[in-house]
């Protein structure tokens, strides 16, 4: 029996976009971006796909990627398939808009996971680069009653257990959990692989399974937000930088040191 691995992935606004393209629509409490700017798969979620693929590199595994949103750029969300994942399940509904909070997202994902069937491991990115909540995977684990391990930089399975090397502030720790379990991973896992031409061709032929709120057996009431955003604004930063200029760059370096001394900072 191959291992069944589910990867949770989110489509987000490209966090590498130019700062000038980032606009907040305060009235509607959402971020707006130019229509020409394509979304991306959340970076940490690409790490999650990579973690799953590394397991599949060494033993038989079936990787299902699950994503939830109001609408998707299909070519973007197919990237995990072109990297080597086997199938894609999209939870798509008008109800899954930006006001949905982490707990509601976790509920919908949990319903989808239960609908897909048994699994050994769920892998997700440590947090999404839009709302930076780092909550959904842990809430899913709680709703499914699974053990959870966060911020993995190495994920290995064997004998019904998952072993995770975690990045800690001053070193690493290795923990072990029985499966099924949920693991989140971070950028320390390393660069996700690039899609191969063969992978891209295979992904073109695959069609995602698309489920609505109703398909999940949920109604809008179960998605009522527990956390409501009442304001969204751009923080004000004080721009009072004193630029140190010299005859040339080397002179500016010398003057900078003198300035820090004068200001009693060194």
């Amino acid at each position: 029996m191959p291992l069944n691995i589910f990867v949770l992935a989110k489509q987000v606004i490209d966090p590498e976009m130019p700062r000038s393209a980032f606009q907040v629509d305060r009235e509607n409490r959402r971020v707006v971006t130019p229509p020409t700017l394509p979304p991306v798969v959340n970076g940490f979620d690409e790490n999650a796909v990579e973690a799953a693929l590394r397991i599949k590199d060494s033993e038989p595994a079936e990787i299902t990627v699950i994503s939830m949103g109001q609408s998707f750029a299909l070519d973007v969300m197919k990237k995990p398939l072109s990297m080597g994942a086997d199938s894609l399940v999209l939870l798509q509904d008008d109800a899954f808009d930006n006001t949905v909070d982490s707990f509601a997202v976790a509920r919908a994902l949990t319903a989808a996971i239960q609908k897909i069937g048994p699994f050994d491991l769920i892998i997700a990115g440590r947090q999404a680069s839009d709302w930076d909540n780092a909550q959904v995977p842990l809430a899913v684990a709680e709703l499914l009653g699974l053990p959870s391990v966060t911020i993995g930089k190495k994920v290995e399975v064997g004998d019904g257990r998952v072993t995770v090397e975690r990045q800690m502030p001053d070193g690493t720790e290795i923990v072990e959990s029985p499966m099924p379990a949920l693991v989140t991973v971070s950028n320390e896992l390393g660069q996700p692989r690039y899609p191969t031409l063969r992978g891209i061709m295979a992904a073109t032929r695959k069609q995602p399974v698309v489920w609505s709120l109703e398909d999940l057996g949920l109604d809008g009431e179960q998605l009522e937000p527990q956390v409501e955003t009442v304001d969204l604004y751009v923080p004000v930063t004080e721009a009072d930088c004193e630029f140190i200029e010299g005859e040339d760059d080397a002179d500016a370096g010398r003057l900078l040191a003198l300035k820090l001394r004068e200001a009693k900072l060194v």
């Binding site: 930063t237 930088c241 900078l256």
Partner: peptide, 24 residues
């Protein structure tokens, strides 16, 4: 970074830092 910095040098670090270090 200059939007949040108190002091800034616009320049090539390879030239700025050696003299900064020596002066320090």
């Amino acid at each position: 970074i200059f939007k949040e910095a108190r002091y800034g040098v616009v320049g090539d670090w390879e030239k700025v830092m050696p003299s900064f270090t020596e002066t320090l």
